[in-house]
Structures are given as structure tokens and as C-alpha cells.
């Protein structure tokens, strides 16, 4: 069963070590709030295992003035998309 992980911390502040052990193939990772700063440091995402889908919450990117190009495997979602992602995964796990 797939899990949508929510990460709202910046690359330097987030619990990446723990998340690395929890992310499974087929899961989704939504970067929101300060998680949006992963857009500026996409190389930090290489610390995570492969095989998951990556999403950025548009409002938080725009609020922070982040206009770096989206990583190739990433998609942006608004709040309606956020809700849809929760529905399309079997559960959510928040890493605040």
C-alpha cells in the first residue's frame, strides 16, 4: 500500500536520514513549506532511495521566490492537487 510522505523542512533541517529508511518504491513525497527549498538544492534528494514520485506544493514555492527549474521527475501541485494526492495514496505520513 502506497504512502504519501509530507516533508515541510529544508534540506539542512529535515529528518532525511529517517525518511530515507521509510520511503518505499511506489510512495509519493510532497515537499511543502520549507520543503520547497529542495527545489534550490535538488542534489540533496539524491540522498533518498529511488522509485518514488516527487511533488512540490506550488503556493510554498511561489511564496519563497523559488524559481529554479523543476527536477526532471518532479510535478507541482496546488492545494486541490495535494488533496487528490492524499486520496490517490493509501495513507499519509508527516515528517515535521
Amino acid at each position: 500500500m502506497s504512502c504519501l510522505h509530507l516533508l515541510n523542512k529544508s534540506p539542512s533541517a529535515g529528518p532525511l536520514d529517517e525518511l530515507r529508511k521509510a520511503l518505499a518504491p511506489g510512495d509519493g513525497l510532497l515537499l511543502l513549506e520549507d520543503g520547497a527549498y529542495f527545489l534550490h538544492k535538488p542534489e540533496e534528494l539524491a540522498r533518498l532511495p529511488q522509485g518514488f514520485s516527487l511533488y512540490f506544493l506550488t503556493e510554498d514555492m511561489l511564496a519563497r521566490g523559488l524559481n529554479d527549474p523543476l527536477p526532471a521527475n518532479a510535478t507541482t501541485v496546488d492545494y486541490d492537487g495535494f488533496v487528490a494526492l492524499c486520496a490517490s495514496h493509501d495513507k499519509t505520513a508527516s515528517w515535521f
Binding site: 529508511k21 521509510a22 520511503l23 495513507k91
Partner: peptide
């Protein structure tokens, strides 16, 4: 181990973290 943790999350209905 990490594999066990992934299975555990995969098999859960609700995760409090």
C-alpha cells in the same frame, strides 16, 4: 532494518509520526 521499516509502513492503515 530499513526493509522492515518500509514493510511496516506499507502494511499500516494510519501512521502517526
Amino acid at each position: 532494518d530499513a526493509g522492515g521499516i518500509r514493510n511496516l509502513i506499507g502494511n499500516s492503515d494510519v501512521v502517526f509520526n
